[in-house]
Design a protein around this nucleic acid. Structure first.
Lengths: 348, 348
DNA sequence: GAAAATCACGAAAACGTTTTCGTGTTAAAA
DNA sequence: TTTTAACACGAAAACGTTTTCGTGATTTTC
């Protein structure tokens, strides 16, 4: 088990100085061809690679970007990561992943851990708990130390930074309009409590679509789920609430759900109540994940282009990192990613 | 935008030496209480945190582990990552994620990128292409430079290192036995080509189970899918092949599939052919992901405990990193994670 | 043949830490 | 009072790079 070879060792072996070795390897004109050849051959033989840590320290630049997400076992977030990885690697950067598990304190700890020199900038989506607590000091602190942040999906307007968001409002609006055009007269909404920023916007899209078509929204058609930290385990409750909704409103012929799981549950309950999809009732969900694609019937969804979000976020961050020219007068962008309606079997 | 504060700056402000500041902050008895208080107060005020990069360079230890996986948009792998993150963070380590996208060259590049000082050790699952090419030089090189590797799930026996694997053989065997006990007389197998190590083992488990019950395996009941790099896009072909299988063998009353997608496709085709699940035909899949849980009918699967795999792998790696006592005579462990059969609606 | 220019290389600083060792000052022991 | 011990701190090296600047030797120029 030999250690990695360093410039110093090469210098010693070849009886030249460290500087000569360094220059020879970088093909500096200062060094004679003889010496260059000798050094380069030796380096190749021993498979020399410069130590990244030393480079980071010297250049005060790690070429690594940190990404903090609430949850990794999640189609949307993992697709975002893939997008970030893709452009980051192409542009010579590494990616460190930190998980907040939807917890405020873990978000803070993870950020502090990475902020001390490990990375050059952050890409993140804030945890539910942080959204509830409305405590954003860690973002401000990080940025005030000159470390740029790009937020995606779950953003907070109070923080001035680059952002990449989904056009939640119009995505929802288009989906509901689709239902209206398909002849739905009584469209239910299954959404989250309002503190979840994206849930709120999607709800708003639903309302606007109805208003545009002169349909008066009815409160009894709107089901707001309290999605406590893990909704996976509350499937029963979820289904019961939906069943209640359907039973109290027999006229429902369309459902818009703000995520896949709600939509799938709605379909399941509908089937249980003997309703045919899409003949008796049509369903559209938000978030185009694996579940939608492989459900039976497959689910029409609003696609968020998660990978593209990751790519844009990474480009935004790296651009900022590499253009330190505009030191003062920071300009922040917000990129809005349009959604697509992916039509499948759950709508006519 | 102030830069992060350093020891040097504190020293200058307080008119002491850098060493004094360092010692004061680490509560060295060499420093008087007066000075300590002064320094610590100042450091707190300016929110001083030691620079990780400098520490890494000094200690020749990054406290970061690298994890290379073929694909992140995948329930199994993201669960493994979560497991790794969990114990890594608990034990004071960061996690860097690299994606090979099932490509040999990207696997090599990613490893080289991280191996030059960025991390202390690897946790990885090899790409399909690497499995095909049988080129493992990068693993050997990495290890010969003193960087430990822990492989999980897709491992290769030629490489001597710690491993965490699923008990694929017995997992498959148990599943098939379950089908036998449930009265299935003609059990089909949907698997991959043999170069995929796990596919091969699961196939073997199927065969052993049949033999144990004196059932003679029939070649026509075994469908080997050539899962080229992305099977998501070959759904049609997949379903056609399965339909062919079912039509040519009307007696089939049980199916064991080596992954979720194959199992789901089998269910879909069966339903299309008018077969009732689980009455006419029972289905079991390998890999307990979201699809299985939310399918209708929900799918009985072999659970691999992905998160636990990640945890064990991380512990294995960190143990090795922190016990450098046994320099020579390396002992390598292989941890076998037992599977569970999660019974749902697709079996009786 | 002397001055100037070119060449080929080395010394040293810097990035931000920690730690070993040395040293001047004060307090305790003889 | 002198010697010794304890105290409080600073200088410097080390981790592995890159880069600026200096310098001796050789070559060119007039």
């Amino acid at each position: 088990m030999k250690r990695k070879i360093t410039l110093k060792q090469i210098a010693k072996e070849l009886d030249v100085s460290i500087s000569t070795v360094s220059k020879a390897l970088r093909n500096s004109p200062e060094i004679s061809d003889d010496t260059k050849q000798k050094v380069q051959a030796f380096a190749k033989l021993y498979n020399y690679r410069p130590n990244n840590i030393a480079l980071s320290l010297k250049n005060r630049k790690t070429n690594t970007i940190g990404i903090i997400i609430p949850e990794i076992v999640h189609h949307f977030f993992s697709k975002v990561i893939r997008g970030v990885e893709l452009v980051a690697n192409n542009r010579g950067y590494n990616v460190i992943v930190g998980l907040s598990n939807e917890s405020f304190s873990r978000e803070v700890i993870n950020m502090e851990m990475l902020a001390n020199g490990s990375i050059d900038g952050f890409i993140l989506s804030i945890s539910k708990e942080t959204q509830q607590l409305q405590d954003f000091h860690h973002f401000n602190e990080t940025m005030s130390q000159g470390m740029p942040i790009v937020m995606f999906d779950r953003v907070v307007s109070e923080i001035k930074c680059d952002k990449v968001i989904v056009d939640d409002l119009n995505g929802a609006k288009n989906a509901v309009e689709k239902l209206v055009h398909n002849g739905c007269k009584s469209i239910a909404l299954i959404t989250t409590k309002d503190y979840v920023s994206v849930g709120k916007l999607r709800t708003q899209g639903y309302l606007e679509a109805l208003q545009d078509h002169k349909i008066v929204p009815k409160a009894e058609l709107i089901l707001k789920i309290d999605d406590a930290l893990d909704f996976e385990s509350h499937l029963d409750t979820l289904e019961q609430e939906i069943e209640q909704l359907f039973k109290s409103n027999k006229a429902i012929d369309g459902v818009f759900a703000v995520n896949e799981l709600y939509a799938l549950s709605a379909m399941k309950v509908a089937r249980k109540l003997g309703l045919k999809i899409p003949d008796d009732i049509q369903v559209i969900g938000f978030t185009d994940g694996v579940l939608s694609k492989h459900a039976t019937p497959s689910l029409t969804t609003v696609s968020q282009h998660a990978q593209q979000m990751g790519e844009r976020a990474a480009d935004l961050l790296i651009d900022k990192l590499e253009n330190e020219i505009d030191t003062e007068e920071e300009e922040f962008q917000t990129i809005i990613i349009a959604t697509d309606l992916v039509e499948r079997e759950s709508t006519k």
